[in-house]
Nucleic acid binder design. Structure first.
Lengths: 339, 339
DNA sequence: TATAATAATGCAATCGATTACGATAATAAA
DNA sequence: TTTATTATCGTAATCGATTGCATTATTATA
């Protein structure tokens, strides 16, 4: 098997010490111009590339950021990753991405793996059903900074969140202002702070605009795939419940609802209007095009990475955790009446 | 700053040699039961975790696989990643994912970064506009095995491809058999082998089924986003070109075409039928639901990883590159007439 | 000419873990 | 009692690169 070229190989070939080779390669003025030239020439010839492992070990610094998130396939998360990459790469950092698949056990394994690889810091969005946080605390205790994003956690660390309350509030306000006052809400899983915030926004908007509200308006959907929400709306219609607007916790749920309505020959948005959440890629494709709340995933990724790098670069002095909440934006499309 | 616990720390605390600690931790019988117990107890107390960097350096083995692919957000690629994860994790390997963003320069940087991190092997799907392959050859020359997937490359290496010819053939055959004989094809970028294969299938099906074919039936779309294909179909209609079926190189293009038809009040599938490619997530959401060709991404990821691990584990002996072509499957939905 | 200053390079420790080999002590065999 | 054997543990080299501290050789200064 071919072996990678090392400093030692260059040194042997040129009959000098590895330390000299090392210095010559980085243009140290202590080394004579002649020697430097010889070394750099040979290095190029043999295609020498430094071993990042050895460097990391030496410097106790991997220049690598670990990223833990629930699923790659979500459009929102992929925009977050782009933001992370932008900042990380331009600062000379690599990233390692781990999917937890919304699985707490996988998440625990991921944190361990990232620690064992001695990443310089971690960006994490916890899985939906994470309720203990020891694995993160343990990492922090070992001196590795963590910044959480998108989903809130009861941990003393920096966080970049989206203003889910505001999103829920504005979605609901838009529905009400377009004349729909008998709304239902397809809500996310209990315990997931983010979905509870959206629900809170839903309720608050009712109160602020003087629209009556009761708990029956909230329909809880578990995983929130389209199929499930299709059935929920189907059942709701079957039970004879009346409504003229739906605020769904995400676009997938919204599509499920939309299809149930279409199957029942209920016109959207004339009879029932719909607002989704997150502005998935398909939301502008489907017919009618879906009104939704856009979160700035790229910005979230960038901000989170900037914060993390700050903490990495000042490992010695204590840094007060920051919590940044990013604004959302409503994207008006065809599933709501726009006046 | 808190520092991670090392073997040396344990050794100092217990007043024994690090070599003894190392052996005790892995239950080496040369170490007395008493000592072993003491070491393991302390290790647990101090939450000792071995430094993967040091191990990798020592063994010249990182147990890490590098993955290079164009974009994470593509549903197909995310299923490939799941397949890769399944096999990699169950074999004790971690993965590092790099997005090239269909950018050759980024791709070159990625290969370098992965090599510098001394990954044990690489799984790669080249970017759309990659036409030189020196960066991959260089990696191979350093003894790191590479397995390519999805997109074919003129490199002597193992490959897992999808049978794009078959997919294009069956899509076209289905359209013709459902009574549509005046088809057009929204084709992918020139030079991308995969899209040329699909086009070849389109042509061959015409010939085999005795349907006249001419080059005007092929409309080339560059990047292939929905907007672009919307315009292409719009222009085609404006020019008065007649057609009753569309085979699109991917689902996004198909949706663009679909929307252009709907805007022109042309009924799908009655007047014009559509077949897409790749079975994106949204394809079963939209209305009408899209008939498409499904590629088994998970299987592709699994097979590619298995092949790569084989090559990694037999680094010394030469392994003949294998090329596996996976079958595709047509998913019949509402954008075509199904008889 | 003797000494100091400078330039150029080598030696060896270091990062954290592993492992071949050597060393010590205790026990068994002769 | 002396030697061989075994159990147990330590020493040092190693992976690849860096870097503080010598060590030379050369030139400048007194």
């Amino acid at each position: 098997m071919k072996q990678a070229v090392t400093l030692k190989d260059l040194a042997r070939e040129l009959n000098i010490a590895t330390s000299t080779v090392s210095r010559a390669l980085k243009g140290n003025p202590e080394i004579s111009a002649v020697t430097t030239a010889r070394v750099q020439k040979l290095a190029k010839e043999l295609n020498y590339e430094p071993n990042a492992l050895a460097l990391s070990l030496r410097h106790s610094k991997t220049n690598t950021i670990g990223v833990i998130l629930p699923e790659l396939v979500h459009f929102f998360f992929s925009t977050v990753i782009s933001g992370i990459e932008d900042i990380a790469y331009s600062n000379g950092y690599n990233i390692i991405i781990c999917q937890s698949n919304e699985n707490i056990d996988r998440e625990i394994l991921d944190t361990k793996a990232l620690f064992n690889h001695r990443v310089d810091g971690i960006l994490a969005c916890v899985s939906r059903n994470t309720s203990v946080y020891d694995h993160f605390i343990a990492i922090q205790d070992k001196g590795i900074p963590i910044v959480f994003f998108d989903r809130d956690v009861p941990i003393d660390a920096s966080k970049i969140l989206s203003n889910d309350f505001e999103g829920g509030y504005n979605a609901t306000k838009h529905l009400i202002e377009s004349g729909k006052i008998n709304l239902i809400h397809l809500s996310g899983p209990e315990g997931l702070m983010l979905s509870e915030q959206r629900t809170r926004g839903f309720i608050q908007a009712h109160q602020d605009l003087g629209i009556p509200f009761n708990k029956e308006k909230i329909l809880r959907c578990g995983d929130g795939d389209a199929q499930e929400n299709y059935k929920i709306i189907q059942n709701t219609l079957k039970k004879g419940m009346k409504f003229d607007g739906i605020f769904a916790v995400n676009d997938i749920a919204a599509v499920g609802a939309l299809q149930a309505l279409q199957a029942a020959h209920i016109s959207v948005p004339q009879e029932v209007a719909i607002v989704g959440y997150s502005d998935w890629q398909f939301s502008s494709f489907i017919s009618p095009r879906l009104t939704t709340i856009r979160q700035n995933g790229n910005e979230m990724g960038r901000k989170a990475t900037e914060l993390l790098l700050e903490e990495i670069h000042s490992k010695d002095i204590f840094i007060e955790p920051k919590c940044i909440t990013l604004p959302t934006k409503i994207i008006l499309r065809e599933t709501t009446l726009n006046k």
